[in-house]
Design a protein around this nucleic acid. Structure first.
Lengths: 352, 352
DNA sequence: GCTTGGCACTCACGACGCGCGAGTGCCAGT
DNA sequence: ACTGGCACTCGCGCGTCGTGAGTGCCAAGC
């Protein structure tokens, strides 16, 4: 075995041992637990070299070594062997997700599943609207002045709003409005649907005097109210940033460093926008992104890692899901779990 | 001042000081910080008496005293002076809740608000279905074999499900079904609506042979599918136990006793059923329930207190909301905040 | 030139001991 | 019934010290 090769083996062993024991690992323990076939002294030399290159560090002089962020990075990039999930795990995933009744349920189950599989804090973004198309729009009369607007998207998401009409619409006018809206929106992508809808309720100032109303027989103010609500629902401002979080109890396993690690993370978990930044920008199609320590966008979370990926029907990536945990985590298993859950969820979205 | 009276004053002072400083409070500090008008020695005698009766305890010999659960109980029952919210707080509550667009939004905003006002972990139950009535049911055709069922309740909640029909329904059959369903359910309370709906899709075995179908022209299997979904949506199994949680970051302020207090609480926060048991059984109509320490139903949470109350439109109590925190908390302010938020939310539900 | 055994060195950690001081309980005096 | 005085208790912080895991380096060996 060549030197360079063994050094990497040593690094891998250090990472694995440290992840398992949570304690700095020394040269002697290393050769005992892994069949390296060399003496502790040799390992010590390798460790000194690895330390020079910045892959490992010692918390204080004459203690064992722990991997640095750079060390974890190398480990993840070059030293991980794919660690397939057990059959039981795969079965658990599929049966657990099969039972979901709607998209919200899928997301909630995924969060739970992910946090249990990885024993970390799981974060799942609700599918974004922007990528999907409008499948159906329905207007339901509640009272003459109140209409329920239902928006159904190809992602499976259903948004509903109640609109207070400034002026009552009779059945006929409503039927006209319904058909115009359906014609404008159905089958379109969100952005296109929004443009088309906007023409139904033009700004009165811009309309040439005496020009025919886009929706004959209906009070323009009521039409505008309905359209506004639809546009608002589509503008994904709210839905875009919805995330589900689960497994916060796993934070208890951080054990040490409550203030430096757990507290900022707890705070971040409440800020959904921040969470999205964390797990966003994820690869898709089986590509799992790993962000180690300070590589992430948030300074306070420099002692945590993020493992995330995109998911969505087909091969598109409508949203992200992932986990947040200590840099000291079992990357191979975690990455496998994240990838598997994303895969199953994507498949379910395909079917829905 | 009579003895008995002063003893209570001493207990109140101990509670207030301990809540403020988080440290055992001694006799000398007491007379200095509160104008008790007696000497430390006298206070010591009173403290000894209070300790005999079980209201206070010392963590170890010759340390200051801290209130026991029994002490907090007496404090809450007899010694709290109503502590009205500041004008700024009242304004913050109302403007923050005004902006809500639907019932989910109201709940989420309430959680956030509560956790910020009290600096504790806030829990808000989504309004229960059982107390409310059916306002509207709509059937929307997606494809000939798929129908979207929308259920709108007086509580403002909207449930929607997609039904796969075993056999296609034509427009006419669907119209018939729609009118029958509306007739059976609209305006009824949930339980009544469920009974009425059940008659629309009777068990074929029980139906006398040749009897007319309740919904002529529609395939009974498809009718059954739609009715089943409606029944399921109404059976509140899912909605009943939905809760929103917020302010977990405030757990960081527990400081000491991570394992005994924070960990079990974190675990409980994930179990919505457990949470409901915690904040449930709450008084309504301005009555705030306080559960101190081991008074609660959950053994592991014996060092936490729960302050909760019911809320809902009118004076009914559709659901509960409250906070969970250390037994050492500022009860007067917390109770005021919980009561105020419940009041505002109830009023918003009235208007909706 | 890598590897290995040997050896002196370092330093975190837990145990032990000690003095301080806040706080108590009790008693005698008013 | 309250108060001042006084002896007593005991947790806490602090410095000391021994232990042992682990290191770095060197000289010998393959």
């Amino acid at each position: 075995m060549i030197q360079e090769e063994r050094r990497l083996a040593v690094l891998r062993a250090i990472v694995e041992d440290y992840v398992a024991t949570e304690e700095p690992v020394g040269s002697k323990a290393l050769v005992e637990r892994h069949g390296l076939g060399v003496s502790p002294a040799t390992v010590r030399n390798d460790m000194a070299a690895l330390e020079d290159e910045g892959y490992i560090a010692q918390p204080h002089t004459s203690a064992g070594r722990i991997p640095t962020d750079k060390g974890y990075r190398l480990f993840v990039d070059r030293l991980t062997t794919v660690k397939p999930l057990s059959g039981a795990e795969r079965r658990a995933i599929s049966t657990f997700l099969e039972g979901a009744v709607d998209i919200d349920d899928v997301v909630q189950r995924s969060v739970r599943l992910l946090s249990q599989l990885t024993r970390q804090v799981a974060v799942v973004q609700y599918p974004t609207l922007s990528g999907s198309t409008v499948r159906h729009v329905e207007l339901v009369v509640l009272t003459p002045e109140r209409v329920l607007v239902v928006l159904i998207l190809s992602s499976g998401r259903v948004e509903q709003r109640v609109v207070e009409l400034p002026a009552a619409l009779d059945e006929e006018a409503l039927a006209t409005l319904r058909s115009r809206v359906l014609h404008a929106a159905t089958g379109q992508r969100i952005a296109e649907a929004m443009e088309a809808l906007a023409t139904l309720a033009p700004d009165p100032e811009e309309l040439p005097h005496g020009a025919p109303s886009p929706v004959p027989g209906a009070d323009p103010r009521s039409v505008a109210a309905v359209v506004d609500v639809l546009l608002e629902a589509m503008s994904d401002e709210r839905s875009d940033q919805r995330v589900a979080v689960g497994g916060a109890a796993n934070l208890a396993r951080f054990g040490d460093s409550f203030d430096t690690a757990v507290r900022p993370l707890l705070e971040a978990l409440e800020e959904h926008v921040v969470l999205l930044k964390l797990i966003g920008e994820a690869g898709s199609g089986g590509l799992v992104t790993v962000r180690i320590g300070a590589e992430g966008p948030i300074e306070q979370l420099s002692s945590t890692s993020v493992v995330s990926t995109g998911y969505g029907p087909g091969s598109q990536s409508l949203a992200s899901l992932g986990i947040v945990g200590p840099t000291r985590m079992d990357y191979p298993s975690t990455m496998a779990a994240v990838r598997a859950v994303a895969g199953y969820v994507s498949r379910i979205l395909d079917e829905g």
